[in-house]
Nucleic acid binder design. Structure first.
Lengths: 250, 250
DNA sequence: CAGTGGTCTAGACCACACT
DNA sequence: GTGTGGTCTAGACCACTGA
């Protein structure tokens, strides 16, 4: 096909110009948000997508390239392109930056111990872009490394998505939270922002982590986003005596 | 030209296969390391490079694409492709993740107060991949936000590159350190690794930052790399009372 | 083997910057 | 207008996967 149909914005329509491959990307993004392709699913081949959208394979390829670098899709040569998922072992704790000082990679283990329904405070509402007073679920848990409590997390989730979450259900599972959220509520965590501060340990965090009141802890606040909105706010106290937060700057 | 010269590894030579564009990237990388194209320089156009390497423009483009996403090169439509530089205002404090709690972007200001020649300890040698006892330069400085000392940095530099650095020269400049290093020593900082911990303030850091002994500080250790080797190790104490370390997870 | 993504090419045209 | 990078196309062939 020499040219795409004449309805949509072509390169010559210069104001607010958006290249074709980005429009294709937008269409594919919508397919993801609307659940046409669920987490872990195999999406159509490049040739099929090219036919469906009436563009060349190269244009589809460029759209997929961008979505792959954004960790939305995963390409596997010879097999096809898949929707990224937190049940992929390579992404189990994709957002966890804490590592042991000795450098030995160990698997973290989530240990939930509280899960209650409440309403959003001002701060929580601001982070989650909901109204103060809206229903939220508050989950508390430890992250263990080698059976030691290293992180104490307080996790706020909007009830319109996460309603019905209970401690019993959580404790019956070994998987990472984001893996569970994906299969239970169909929410895929895409990106997150973290804000870090050093603080002095207070109760009850101090005794829960087994450190003295007043000892330094790393406070990590995280807002996590799905495709189009924030869906999680968490405050974590990290004990950095034998672990550290690792960050690569590029 | 239908095919490149037959000397180097072609796709058909399958063991340790490396695509053409990656080989081109290697050649361009060497031109950067060897200084053929200095920081900020305009590199040849895609068509010229394609002719020089005997490949198509598309292949050169893919090599440049990768180097641009690695922040080695900067493309500017209509003008050309340039070697990235820390004197570009958009990269002034590219590796600085500290921001004010109110979110207002303020320019940081480097305030050096000590610069001495010494020899590498075990720890410094390990970080810089040099031998213990090798000559190093140790620089101490504050980072100020709105005329307040927020960060206290201790910076270790190998003397084989940074020999001759003096406090007087540093204090006569307003630019960022990496900007100075680039123009004075020809060293471009490419990427860095940071390790973060919460610690209790001790002397002399506490009084230098104007906080009480025992108050929590964020300890940030950074190893910075140029194209091919580590060239800086720094320990920074961050006062996170009114600022925080911001990190985006993708 | 067929089907998928990965690489490479060649050529056309568009958007942008400078002169 | 000229030269640059940016987009889009069409087709060929390679590398990997699994039946």
């Amino acid at each position: 096909m020499p040219l795409p149909p004449s309805d949509s914005a072509l390169p010559s329509a210069s104001p607010t110009f958006s290249p074709l491959y980005r429009q294709i990307k937008g269409l594919m993004l919508r397919a993801l948000v609307e659940g046409e392709w669920g987490p872990g699913a195999l999406i159509p081949s490049e040739a099929e997508l090219a036919a469906r959208f009436g563009v060349s394979q190269g244009t589809v390829r460029k759209a997929i390239d961008e979505m792959a670098t954004e960790n939305l899709l995963v390409r596997r040569q010879g097999k096809g392109t898949f929707v990224a998922t937190h049940s992929d072992p390579r992404a189990f704790y994709r957002f966890l930056r804490l590592v042991a000082d000795d450098g030995v990679p160990r698997q973290a283990q989530s240990v939930p111990f509280s899960c209650i329904d409440t309403t959003a405070s001002e701060a929580v509402a601001r982070a989650l872009k909901i109204q103060p007073g809206d229903a939220v679920v508050v989950l508390e848990r430890f992250l263990d490394f080698a059976d030691e409590h290293v992180v104490l997390d307080e996790i706020f989730l909007p009830a319109d998505i996460f309603g019905g979450l209970t401690l019993a259900r959580l404790q019956a599972e070994e998987r990472s939270l984001y893996n569970l959220f994906e299969s239970w509520f169909g929410v895929r965590m895409i990106r997150a922002e973290e804000r870090l501060r050093a603080v002095s340990a207070r109760e009850p965090a101090a005794s829960r982590l087994g450190v003295a009141v007043g000892s330094p802890l790393l406070l990590v606040e995280r807002i996590t986003y799905t495709y189009d909105r924030p869906v999680e706010w968490r405050r974590g106290f990290y004990n950095t005596e034998r672990h550290h937060y690792f960050n690569e700057l590029t």
